[in-house]
Nucleic acid binder design. Sequence first.
DNA 1: TTTTAATTTATTGTATACAATAAAAAACGC
DNA 2: GCGTTTTTTATTGTATACAATAAATTAAAA
Lengths: 222, 222
Amino acid sequence: MNPYNAIKNAIIIGEYEPGKRLTEEALAESLQVSRTPIRDAIKQLESDGLIIPFKRRGYIVKEFSIEDIRQIYNLRALLESHGAGEAALNRTKEELQFMHEKNTAYEQAISELKRSDISTIKNIQQANQEFHEEIFKATKNEHLRSHISKVVVVPLIFRSFYWYNERQLLRSLEVHKTILKAIENREPERAKIAMQEHIYQGRDDVLVQMANPKIELSKGEV
Amino acid sequence: MNPYNAIKNAIIIGEYEPGKRLTEEALAESLQVSRTPIRDAIKQLESDGLIIPFKRRGYIVKEFSIEDIRQIYNLRALLESHGAGEAALNRTKEELQFMHEKNTAYEQAISELKRSDISTIKNIQQANQEFHEEIFKATKNEHLRSHISKVVVVPLIFRSFYWYNERQLLRSLEVHKTILKAIENREPERAKIAMQEHIYQGRDDVLVQMANPKIELSKGEV
DNA sequence: TTTTAATTTATTGTATACAATAAAAAACGC
DNA sequence: GCGTTTTTTATTGTATACAATAAATTAAAA
């Protein structure tokens, strides 16, 4: 794994906690490479908004406020719902087929859910992401895709902490089907609104968890 | 000027034309710095979508197709119109005042327009940009702002080639006033739609120019 | 004591040399 | 001559040493 993904991953799984201070030298030591590739990685992570410079004394892992999360999810809703609408207009038959396959895989992953099984949760997350990506491919809009990919990183952090319960997952699966059907029927407005609602659901699930630390779930637990 | 802005500027003003090949060494030589800061700049420019790697033999300045331009402007419309709506909800009295001032400066810059005067054109462009930025400050949404700032770079290239005629500029000024009034009256939907229309106008002006190279204007001419 | 100045230190910024490698050119076999 | 292998070359990737500088610490002055 390259330094960028290694560090990003450490942030996402919570190994580097919010507020943790990072320096080029320490990262270079820890990943056994020189400072040069670490600097490249740091620049990218900074542009992703995952770390911020800390008064010329390294960087700190960004601590996201509730308002940050709200704003990022709203942006996601804006961009992904737009993408779903475009996909409904531009999808080919083949792309539609791929979407169905990805969503079947998602359904499969959910049905394999076992309590507190981290690997299963990762599978669900992965399958979900692949379904969404299949939609954005069908837009044929690389510019839109690159913006979406940026706005999707931060939610990953929070999803890996507070994961969904089965009821939420099944609801999510239903919405996927609604989106798919709208894309199949070439109904952009319907696809757009369904996607918007889908993202807002995810947002609110995360916000509820953040606002009630009492019932916060430990890492990976369901 | 730092290497990033120097290179970006050279691309925007057309000194580095689309398709031109750039290598780290040549840029380092030309800007009289070492390869290290050039590499930083290149990484950023690549993430901006202004240059793309050219089979491990340097980079080339991206050539934007009509479809690229359409997609980028549509994205801009999506993000900036959302921003205008948010600004209508969240603006303070002071921020509204600033917007008025920036738009007055814009009006002033237009009234000073002289035929083929490049410095005046730069002033107009600058004043226009500052008006838009004032709106996005008022959203208090840093995440939205960072996305908008990214999607605004490419249009700069095309605006500096095909600049508007006076009729277009005056129409643009009128729309600014409509947006301002909607933000003043806290009408998010109105602000959003006016902004959307504003961006689409800009898009179509550029697309018309691109589709009719016969009447293409030379650099900076009005 | 508290403020100000001087010194030290931690850390990023920059230059530069060398390594890795993909692309281009040249040599080779048929 | 045409496809294949080998060699050369252009260019980025990486390591490392040194420079610049902001922050922290210490010393001095008031």
